[in-house]
């Protein structure tokens, strides 16, 4: 990355780096929140079919597994999507 080229910029190199990491962090947080919300919805539906008087240990085990599997699914889907995009790109050339 060539930081010296931005001479006319109002930002110094440090300021720019700070702004960039701030932007990235905010996006990461938003993304994590979105995923967490989806996990809560899906895993509640699949693991808590008969809500008891408390969250049983088998409920908790199911929720833990379910969350891990949701992240697995997200990664599998992401990989498939990215590979498809690359394939489409290769065909377009």
């Amino acid at each position: 990355m060539d930081y010296s080229s931005g001479q006319k910029s109002a930002l110094g190199a440090n300021e720019r780096a700070a702004l960039m990491s701030n932007i990235k962090q905010q996006l990461d947080v938003a993304h994590a929140q979105e995923l967490l919300q989806q996990v809560s919805e899906k895993c509640f539906k699949m693991c808590i079919q008969k809500p008891g008087s408390s969250l049983s240990s088998s409920d908790q085990k199911c929720l833990t597994y379910c969350m891990d599997r949701y992240f697995d699914a997200f990664n599998i889907v992401g990989r498939a999507y990215s590979q498809r995009l690359q394939k489409e790109l290769a065909n377009a050339r």
Binding site: Q38, C43, M46, C47, C62, R69, Y70, A73, F74
Partner: peptide, 13 residues
């Protein structure tokens, strides 16, 4: 992921 989870996952446990 939202769509495909419903179609493909029968048991997340």
């Amino acid at each position: 992921t939202l769509e495909c989870w419903d179609l493909c996952i029968t048991n997340p446990n």
